[in-house]
């Protein structure tokens, strides 16, 4: 990128807003899978799933951490292949 003329400023702001929308959406999911289930773990544990996991234990030990991996790939792929492309921020040879 060369210097940022005025017309680019508007573009940059639109890019930044769209980027925040994605980040905030993903952070809301991150927050939900991290903080909403542990307070109820004792009651959730009464439910058994899969090979016999108590649900509360399973959510913390497998579900949440798997969602984290997926969230990061969604973020990276959406930014690189959709949002950056839309605003012309692509790597040159």
């Amino acid at each position: 990128m060369a210097s940022t003329p005025v017309s680019d400023t508007a573009k940059l702001e639109a890019y930044w807003r769209e980027h925040w929308r994605l980040i905030l959406t993903l952070l809301v999911i991150w927050f939900a899978v991290t903080y909403l289930h542990p307070p109820f773990a004792a009651s959730l544990n009464k439910i058994k799933i899969l090979t016999g996991f108590p649900l509360g234990y399973w959510l913390s030990s497998q579900f949440s951490i798997t969602v984290y991996v997926i969230l990061i790939f969604i973020y990276a792929l959406t930014m690189n292949n959709v949002i950056d492309k839309k605003y012309g921020f692509e790597e040159k040879e």
């Binding site: 991150w30 991290t34 773990a41 030990s61 951490i65 990061i72």
Partner: peptide, 24 residues
């Protein structure tokens, strides 16, 4: 037991913050 899962979640969930807010 369950209480140690804070480490499992904390030491993985931190990477979400790292990816979205820091690394790039």
């Amino acid at each position: 037991g369950y209480d140690a899962l804070a480490y499992i979640m904390g030491w993985t969930g931190g990477y979400v913050l790292l990816a979205l807010l820091f690394a790039p």
